[in-house]
């Protein structure tokens, strides 16, 4: 699939049925819409011209249309969209087509409010034309069917925007994850791993890999793991810490756990987790002192 047709969403038959039911689009509506095809054809050019006149009059929507050629191109696509309302068919292909339209607008960076505003404009233009052509009660029934389908389309558009935002969010989270595992060399053969935030499985694996590679590269003897910035230390986090300690020991490095607050200490004990495999120090400074003693160094007072 190329970029042009890519949509992050899929709607299967069951979902389509339930959504159709929620918008109360029945076969009668679809038949009515199909019967309006001639009406749609007749007013097609007129409505599309009014539509773009409005859009180009408004600065916030005009900026998305660079030049006359692009306006001509989207007008053609818009006509396809418009006639699609009167196809009388609402199937998976219809939905895919609508989702693609939504994804295209999202990709060019059009804000959702501009997009939704255009749907409202569509309904206004259609209401005027229906009122001119049909007597009030019939126009009302026709309009109701059109409105159901347009609102259905709007729901799909909103979904494509949300799906795309969620995707972006996921990408950012992955990026933050990568950034958030700094491994600092505090002294020859002494590394510091300050952990901040939530440690989930994915992050724990990444932490372990990062620190193992660094320890091997620097031939480190000690890794200080500071958990002052970890809000919750549950058995999962403790398990990760213990596994990292075991792996580090295999390549000849000791681990020192620092930054344990009093309430985290008590929670760990109540959980029944045994972390005696790790050296522990309350303060980072004490951890550094212990690390230095392991590599045979000492911090001493010098005369001023």
């Amino acid at each position: 699939m190329n970029r042009e047709t890519r949509t992050p969403l899929k709607l299967d038959d069951a979902e389509l049925r339930s959504r159709r039911a929620y918008f109360e689009i029945n076969d009668e509506d679809l038949e009515r819409l199909a019967s309006l095809r001639a009406f749609g054809q007749t007013h097609l050019d007129d409505i599309i011209e009014s539509f773009y006149r409005f859009i180009l009059e408004h600065h916030e929507s005009r900026v998305f249309f660079a030049d006359d050629t692009s306006v001509q191109r989207v007008k053609r696509l818009q006509k396809e969209y418009f006639l699609g309302l009167f196809s009388g068919v609402l199937d998976v292909r219809y939905v895919e087509n609508r989702l693609r339209v939504g994804a295209t607008h999202e990709r060019i960076g059009m804000p959702l409010r501009i997009y939704l505003g255009a749907y409202a404009l569509y309904l206004r233009l259609l209401l005027v034309k229906l009122g001119e052509e049909y007597e009030p009660s019939l126009a009302g029934m026709h309009f109701r069917s059109v409105q159901k389908l347009v609102y259905f389309d709007m729901s799909l558009a909103v979904d494509t925007y949300i799906a795309s935002y969620v995707e972006t969010l996921g990408r950012h989270q992955a990026a933050i994850r990568e950034l958030s595992t700094p491994c600092i060399r505090v002294y020859d053969r002494v590394l510091l791993l300050p952990l901040v935030g939530t440690i989930d499985t994915q992050r724990a694996q990444q932490i372990m890999e990062t620190v193992l590679v660094r320890v091997a590269d620097e031939q480190a003897r000690v890794v200080i793991v500071d958990i002052a910035g970890v809000p919750v230390v549950d058995t999962k986090v403790a398990d990760h810490l213990l596994k990292t300690t075991a792996a580090l020991r295999l390549i000849g490095a000791e681990s020192i756990l620092t930054g344990i607050s009093p309430h985290v200490a008590r929670t760990i004990v109540q959980l029944g987790v045994d972390i005696s495999a790790m050296y522990t120090k309350s303060r980072l400074a004490d951890g550094i002192e212990l690390a230095l003693s392991i590599v045979g160094k000492r911090i001493t007072q010098v005369a001023p």
Binding site: P231, V232, D234, S261, P262, H263, T267, L271
Partner: peptide, 26 residues
């Protein structure tokens, strides 16, 4: 955690209920 703090739980109780919730949610 937010609710425990808002209700005025102390730090130990907050950590305890948050951690227990974390275990069971997982």
């Amino acid at each position: 955690r937010d609710l425990a703090q808002a209700q005025g739980f102390d730090a130990f109780a907050t950590a305890a209920v948050t951690t227990a919730a974390s275990e069971l949610a997982r």
